Simulated scan of single mutants.
Amino acid sequence: MSDWRHLRTGRLWLDEPVQDDLEDLHRIHADPDSWAHFPQGRHLDLARTQRTLDASEVEWTHGLGYWSVRDSTNGPVIGMAGCAVVADRPWGNLYYRFDPAARGRGYASEVAEAAVEAAHVVAPDRPVMAYLLEINVASRRTAEKAGLTLVWRGPDAGNEDPDAVRLVYLDREPDAAIRAAVDEHFTPRPAV
């Protein structure tokens, strides 16, 4: 497959986000329950969700990005998920965020598995990464079901919760260059 902008899984319709998805994506990203483990990530205004949608358009120019997720062709967007392969990162970023009403059905795992498979085709030399908070057990399970394993654990730089712990999962054992990039990206910097 050369165009991953539209993919069908067993139960889901995965499509490159379009402007018509903005209201549904904002509803999901603005919902406090969607950000229970990281409240500062919540989208407080439509402009922030628009920036996410605009960034998605750029990500897709590299062959893969985050999809708008529907459980039928005509249904509302119930999530945003996928794997973004961006030029300035040596890994593909696995992401999944769903409407709280759609959780508990295995949708995140279904999309995550499809996204990892797509990333292996689009950028086979690039590892797939999921980074998440240790307290988010459901997200950890999703990453693990998608075949990722824990490779880094440490304080979550910039998190308003000083006790927050960040976990980094990869789909393969990191080589020295990837390990150095992970350390550089996720290790908190001392205040200057």
Rank of each mutant, 00 (worst) to 15 (best):
A114I: 02
A130G: 01
V128L: 07
A180R: 08
S109W: 09
A157E: 14
L148G: 02
N159D: 14
E110P: 03
S109T: 15
A138L: 12
V122R: 09
E144R: 03
D163H: 00
G154Y: 11
A157W: 09
V128T: 12
G92V: 05
G158Q: 07
A177Q: 12
A143M: 07
L170N: 08
L94Q: 04
D183G: 14
A123C: 10
V121W: 04
T187Q: 13
P100Q: 06
V182N: 03
T187S: 15
R126L: 09
G154I: 12
E117C: 05
V121H: 06
G154P: 13
D125P: 03
I135M: 08
P162A: 10
A101S: 15
R141Y: 05
E110Y: 01
S139C: 10
P188K: 14
A191E: 13
R166Q: 14
T142K: 10
D171I: 08
N93Q: 10
A143Y: 00
K145S: 09
L148W: 01
Y96H: 14
V121D: 03
D171G: 06
D175L: 00
L167E: 04
P127R: 00
R172P: 02
D99Q: 11
P124L: 10
V165A: 00
P124R: 09
P100E: 03
D161G: 04
P155H: 09
L148S: 00
L150G: 07
D125G: 13
R172V: 08
R166F: 01
R105N: 15
D125E: 12
R140A: 08
Y95V: 08
R97P: 03
Y169M: 01
A119H: 02
P155A: 14
V182G: 01
A119L: 07
Y169S: 04
D125V: 07
K145L: 06
I135D: 05
R140F: 03
G92W: 01
A143I: 04
R126C: 03
P190Y: 08
E173N: 06
A118S: 00
I135H: 00
D156M: 00
R189N: 08
A157H: 12
R126H: 04
R166M: 13
R97Q: 14
E184Q: 15
A191R: 15
R141W: 02
H120K: 13
D175N: 11
